[in-house]
């Protein structure tokens, strides 16, 4: 039963990676920018709710709504000011500056503000579904973990349906494939960039709120989350949300298995060594070649 419990734990962690990987991949698909701040929105979600609820005594529902509204408004303003100047202006910037720099700077900015507002201790949003772990045939299901899995499934399916079965989803793909071609068809590529940026910021914040009771967050947790999401997205060549999702789940399960069977201490080290080895062995199969060529 050790295997089963490790698998469950791995799927829960993996679904977190997967969702962030999908967020990174979908947005990259739209506007060719890597969102390195996506994890920071999760951190703001978790610590913001904690701060409003525990420190300022707001009712939980109000705290959640307020935090989400703040995140959405902030993401919207950021897109309207920074990304608009960078991508839409008469002096359009191209290449690595836009791909990495602006969201990287945003991540540091959010971290700094979060440290000021929330301090540097470990906190978490209150658990939304309280009670003992559920047990079934000696398998343990943490309630928070089940919530995370459920959220991941809902979000994954929603993305899939949107991209696969709506004209808007196809327009979103077209925006990233060929911005000029998209404009010719009357597609407002900026609108999709904004929509997905604000949308993924909200998804990240919700995930932070749901997931933080499991791990606990500090103002620096965002970077780690972004990094794993980024890594899993890389396994989909940044452009294939479906593969990013599978990669995220796989990395989560592998991490849990290595931690359980190989070494709790060096599990992560072995994990990243294996991931790097896999890329070297099958660069094309894992989508890394397209990641390089864009």
């Amino acid at each position: 039963m050790k295997f089963g419990n490790l698998l469950i734990a791995g799927l829960v962690t993996g679904s977190i990676y997967a969702v962030f990987a999908v967020c990174v991949a979908v947005w990259y698909r739209v506007c060719n920018i890597l969102n390195l701040a996506v994890g920071d929105f999760a951190m703001v979600g978790a610590l913001g709710v904690d701060n409003l609820y525990r420190v300022r005594g707001m009712p939980l529902a109000a705290a959640i709504v307020t935090t989400l509204v703040v995140v959405a408004v902030f993401a919207y303003v950021y897109d309207q000011v920074v990304l608009r100047l960078a991508q839409d202006g008469p002096r359009r910037m191209e290449g690595i500056v836009v791909t990495f720099f602006f969201t990287f700077a945003l991540a540091f900015f959010i971290d700094g503000v979060a440290k000021m507002l929330f301090g540097s201790d470990v906190h978490a949003a209150p658990a939304l579904w309280n009670g003992q772990a559920l047990t079934w045939a000696s398998l343990h299901f943490e309630r928070a973990g089940l919530l995370v899995l459920a959220c991941a499934i809902v979000i994954g399916v929603a993305f899939w349906v949107y991209i696969r079965f709506t004209l808007g989803g196809k327009a979103l793909e077209a925006s990233g494939e060929n911005a000029i071609g998209a404009r010719i068809a009357g597609i407002d590529t900026r609108r999709y960039r904004r929509l997905i940026f604000v949308g993924t910021a909200l998804i990240a914040a919700v995930f932070g709120i749901v997931e933080s009771p499991i791990t606990g967050y500090t103002y620096l947790s965002g970077a780690t989350i972004s990094l794993t999401g980024f890594l899993a997205a890389a396994y989909g060549g940044f452009r294939k949300p479906g593969r990013a999702l599978v990669a995220g789940l796989f990395i989560g399960v592998l991490e849990a298995m290595l931690g359980g069977y190989v070494s709790a201490e060096y599990g992560d080290t072995v994990l990243y060594a294996l991931l790097a080895a896999a890329v070297l062995a099958w660069p094309r199969g894992l989508g890394f070649e397209s990641a390089v060529s864009g």
């Binding site: 004209l167 196809k170 060929n178």
Partner: peptide, 29 residues
């Protein structure tokens, strides 16, 4: 406009490329 150098969406299917022409008047696939 049917632009110079075609400006298609290379990774989308031909059918999806064509149907996106409808985007200017509908959002329903």
């Amino acid at each position: 406009l049917v632009p110079e150098r075609r400006q298609l969406y290379p990774e989308l299917s031909a059918a999806d490329n064509i149907i996106l022409g409808c985007y200017c008047w509908t959002r329903s696939l």
